[in-house]
Amino acid sequence: MPLTKPNIPLVDIRTLSEHKEDVFLISRFGSYLAKHQNLHLAHRHSFYHLVFFTKGAGFHTIDFTRFETKPYQIYFMIPGQVHSWSFEGEIDGYVVNFSPAFFQSFLLRPDYLDSFPFFNNIVQDSVINLESPLNEKIKGLFEEIILHDSQKEVFQNDIIRALLLQIFILIDQNHFASKPQTIPQYNYALLKNFQKLIEKNYTNLKLPMEYADLLYITPNHLNALCKEHLGIQAGEVIRNRIILEAKRLLINQQTSISEIAYFLNFKDNSYFSKFFKKQVGITPEEFRKKTH
């Protein structure tokens, strides 16, 4: 049977909560691990997922990039990313899950979270080591969120949203604000729209000219933008997203290479395998063996 949708186990926030209508969850990470032990296996979320470690060691893998876990390290994950972990010793910290809808009624700009680099689907920007005194400040804000989450009070969710935004802004100011912002606003908007279009259409549209048409610019203009601000051409941006999804799907041993090729809209298994090997350096079969 053809594969019609990604088949990595998808965890919904409501399955993790005692209250099925919840769109927000916070927990101490030690308690969260004890309650959801199966979540160490590769899976993806339908929600935003934050983990702030205060104790422990091991490894955490996000979209096939492996990070060594250490105290005062914070992870930001967006819906759809695949991750798994392997921890050692006593682990503690905080975990926050919230649905995409959690901030939509609170902020006038629906893309507000996208303005933070750690929510931009760039894995290297989503894992941050916090140093003193910022780490204690962030820890205190997580404690405040836990306190307000345990109380039934007026504007409870708005207080929690404001505290979360304070965490986001503090980390952005301390880790990203010093980096020079060289992309003009118009070019930045074009690149963001290009990336959003890829996210929606990567299984069907694979050529830069197809995206350039949707953006009402020329393929040369799109290539120049990507080369200048991302360091790679538009075609490579598209191919990177296709390869990422292929890797995500290859984790599941029950799905055949032919089914994955069909889902990603390749004309046959052979063409997909050649494309994958050219980009990754190994065949899909070799990648699958390597990740198990």
Rank of each mutant, 00 (worst) to 15 (best):
G30W: 01
K192G: 10
Q73H: 02
F116T: 03
G235R: 06
A57G: 11
K196W: 06
E210M: 02
N7D: 13
A189S: 14
F103E: 08
Q253E: 13
K137H: 10
S126A: 14
N157R: 03
Q233I: 03
A162H: 08
Y188C: 01
L163Y: 10
L249R: 02
T61Q: 13
E88K: 13
L244A: 11
P180I: 13
T15P: 00
R14F: 13
A177V: 07
P71V: 02
S256C: 08
K139S: 12
G140S: 15
N240G: 06
N174K: 14
I282Q: 14
V127F: 05
K20D: 08
I198A: 05
S270P: 00
A34E: 13
Q37V: 09
I171E: 03
L214S: 05
E245M: 10
H45L: 05
L225G: 03
S273C: 07
P100R: 01
S273P: 05
R28V: 06
V280Y: 09
F106H: 14
K192Q: 15
A189V: 04
V127G: 04
F155I: 01
A234H: 03
W85V: 05
F24M: 09
L163S: 13
R161A: 12
L205S: 06
L207S: 07
R248Y: 02
N121R: 14
H292Q: 13
S273D: 04
S115F: 11
H292C: 06
M1V: 09
Q156P: 02
N120T: 12
K290T: 12
S84N: 14
E245W: 01
N204F: 13
S27H: 07
P79Q: 04
F29G: 02
Q233Y: 12
H45W: 00
Q104V: 11
Q81S: 12
S105C: 08
I91G: 07
A261T: 07
Q151D: 07
K152I: 15
L214Y: 09
P184S: 10
F287K: 11
E144K: 12
L230G: 00
Q254C: 07
S46W: 01
G281R: 03
K179L: 13
